[in-house]
Structure formats: C-alpha cells, structure tokens
Simulated assay, not measured.
Amino acid sequence: MSKNVLITGGTGFIGSHLTDLLLENGYSVSVLSRSNRQSNTQITYYQWDLKRNYIDEDAVLNADFIVHLAGEGIVEKRWTKKRKKSILDSRVKPIELILSVLTKHNKTLDSFISASGIGIYGAKTSHKICDEETLPANDFLGVTCQIWENAVDKIDALNIRTAKIRTGIVLAKDQGFMKKITPTFKSGFGAVLGTGKQYIPWIYVDDLCRIYLKAIEDEKINGPYNACITDNTTNTRLSRLLAELYGYNIWLPKIPPFFLKLLLGEMSVAVLKGQRVSSDKIQKTGFEFRFTDLEKTLINCVK
C-alpha cells in the first residue's frame, strides 16, 4: 500500500499544489478540513475544528507522514491584538491537537514536517545574510515563528523526525502574493514600496512543494531549512520587472513608508522590511532549485 500523507491546510494555495505532487509520486493524501467533504479514491477528508479543540483522530492514526501548512495569512488583516493571537493560534493549536493524538495512542510517524517562515529572522532590512543558525528576532514575526517551531520540537521529542521549512515569498500564477499585486501592476499602476531596498527572498511554488517532497523522502532532513532563492532580489527589482512584463516602466513615485504605516499599521513592516536569506543548507542535501531566474519565473506567473 502507498504511504499516506496527512496535510493540514491541504485545501489552501500551497496545500493543493503539494497534494497534486504527492499523488503524482504515488502517495495517498489525507486532508483536514473544517467542512464536510466527500472523500474520493485519491484524497480522504477528515474534519477538525480548532475552536472546539476537535480533531478526527483517525486522520492522525492513519497517517505515515504529516505536513503542517495550516495558518491564517500574515498580511490579510491589520495586526490588532486579536489578529495577532489568531495568527499564532492557527499555527500552534493544530500541532497541539496532533501531539495529543500521538501521545494518547502512542502513535509514531515516519516524519512530521511543518511550514515556518523567514520572518523568524525579523522584520528588518540589513546586508546580513541569515542562515538557519541566525538567532530569532524579538519582534512579532520572529516570536511567532519561534513559538511555532517550539511546538514542532514537542513532536520531535517523541523521537519522530521533524523538519521546519522556513518559507519566503511564494510565487505562483494568480495565487498568494501574485494574486495580491498582479491587478495593480496589470492596470499600469505598479509602484515601488517604501525605499525599495528591502529584500524579497522568493521561491516558486513548484520548488517549494519539491522541498516538502524531499523532506518526506530524505531521512537525513531534520530541523530548520530556509526555502527561498538567494539572489538579493529587492522590492525595486521585482516591481520594475513586473511592470516591464506588462509593457511599461514604473511612472508613479515610490509609495512613502508613512503612508503604508498609516494604511496598514504595524503590519506595514511585512512589506517595508526584508532580509537576505541563505538557501545553502537545503542545497547541500542535494536539492536543486528549478526556478532561479526571477524574470523567467515572473513570466511563468503572468503568462
């Protein structure tokens, strides 16, 4: 029988792409969903409800691998105190529910692989290149990612191999980051944000899913790994390339930081700041990125 991979957040942007890749590679896939969904021959749906602290235990008990992708969007809404709690809880509570089932039934897994974020290094811009040994920052993003990863460590303590995929900006056609910015650039009103010097460590969705597949299949994969291209892309470079793909040069002035702070509040740091991040560690495992040229990747996203 094929190995089963349980995905939290499996109906989302990255989860749906990963599901397709896993099925192509002979795995069976299970997905945790808040709604009743009809299982089919390829995907089995199980229910869970974080608000009620409920999870269908069979989802965990039937899994060989678990990939944790669930979590509310970082830049969907202003960072109120309530919103910050929701962002954190949506990432940590699923792990706690899964841990409770694993402990209750003395269940083991081949591995538990969790998303994380390069936000662990903090919302700031510097020339420093962050690697997996860089200490977490003390700001909201840094602390959130640290608590998120600490929750994963509790599963690691059960002698289950764990990996944490610290993800950059994920590029894909009409989804995620590109879905948010494409309409503005397509209409001819693209602009550079703030100074434009903030770095944007990016990765194409296909490569990200291949990293998850690598983490599933390679027993040497353990601990944190940065998942992004190390090419020093800045907001200015990305903005100019995207505008050129739509046939114009940026004519609007840079959007000043104070305006974005007024519009977005504290959340503005997510678009005004950005660090360089190294992908050496994942590449040393033998993983090879297929999408390393930003312009070609953007063409793939807008064509």
Rank of each mutant, 00 (worst) to 15 (best):
S2F: 10
N4S: 13
V5W: 11
L6F: 11
I7P: 12
F13L: 08
I14Y: 04
I14D: 01
S16G: 07
H17A: 08
L22I: 10
L23M: 11
E24K: 15
G26P: 10
V29E: 00
V31I: 15
S33M: 02
N36A: 13
R37T: 13
S39L: 04
Q42P: 00
T44K: 14
Y46A: 02
Q47P: 09
Y54N: 05
I55M: 12
E57L: 12
A59V: 08
V60W: 04
V60C: 12
D64T: 08
F65E: 03
V67P: 06
L69D: 01
E72V: 14
G73R: 15
W79H: 05
W79V: 04
T80R: 07
K81Q: 14
K84M: 03
I87K: 09
L88M: 14
S90A: 08
S90L: 07
V92G: 01
K93A: 07
P94Q: 11
P94M: 02
I95F: 01
L97A: 07
S100V: 02
H105V: 03
T108V: 08
L109W: 02
L109T: 12
L109Y: 01
D110R: 15
S111F: 07
F112E: 08
F112A: 02
I113L: 00
G122D: 01
H127Y: 12
C130M: 15
D131L: 13
T134H: 02
L135G: 00
A137D: 05
N138T: 15
N138V: 13
F140N: 04
L141E: 12
I147N: 06
D153N: 14
I155F: 03
I155T: 10
L158Q: 06
K164C: 12
K164F: 09
G168A: 05
I169L: 13
V170P: 01
D174Y: 07
G176A: 06
P183E: 10
F185G: 04
S187R: 13
G188I: 07
G194D: 10
T195I: 00
G196K: 05
P201E: 03
I203A: 05
Y204V: 06
V205I: 15
K214F: 14
A215Q: 01
D218R: 00
E219S: 15
K220N: 11
I221L: 14
I221V: 15
N226F: 02
A227N: 10
A227T: 09
N235I: 07
N235W: 07
T236K: 11
R237L: 14
S239A: 15
S239L: 13
A243F: 13
A243C: 00
E244P: 02
Y246C: 13
Y248T: 01
I250M: 00
W251T: 14
P256E: 12
L264A: 11
L264R: 08
E266T: 05
S268R: 03
V269C: 05
A270C: 10
L272S: 03
K273E: 15
K273M: 03
G274L: 13
V277F: 04
V277S: 06
Q283Y: 02
F287H: 04
R290S: 08
T292D: 09
L298S: 07
L298E: 00
I299L: 14
I299H: 09
